[in-house]
Amino acid sequence: MLVESLALSAVLFTIGVVGVLTRRNAIIIFMCVELMLNAVNLTFVALSKVYGATGQVFVVFTMTVAAAEAAVGLAIIIAIFRHQRTVNLSNINLLKG
């Protein structure tokens, strides 16, 4: 049960990493980050079954940080879109050397 949950969490986290590395759409990359946060939450919940309910307190904190991150990140994406008329990261290369 615990091992299966942790393995599922590892698989979901890896899918999120592969999504971040392959996609070029800023919003989809952002959603991949949310998927990785969800995978970490699953780890917390699975281990809280053994270590006690404190792990679930950290899930509350993770969800709060994810909500704050979504609000600020999407505002940044809207600001970039207003400036560049695109959210494709290939066209957002101001800092590229």
Binding site: L8, V11, I15, G16, G19, R23, I28, M31, C32, L35
Partner: peptide
């Protein structure tokens, strides 16, 4: 969850 995540990316 795994199948939906693969479909998602």
């Amino acid at each position: 969850a795994i199948a939906s995540a693969i479909a998602f990316v």
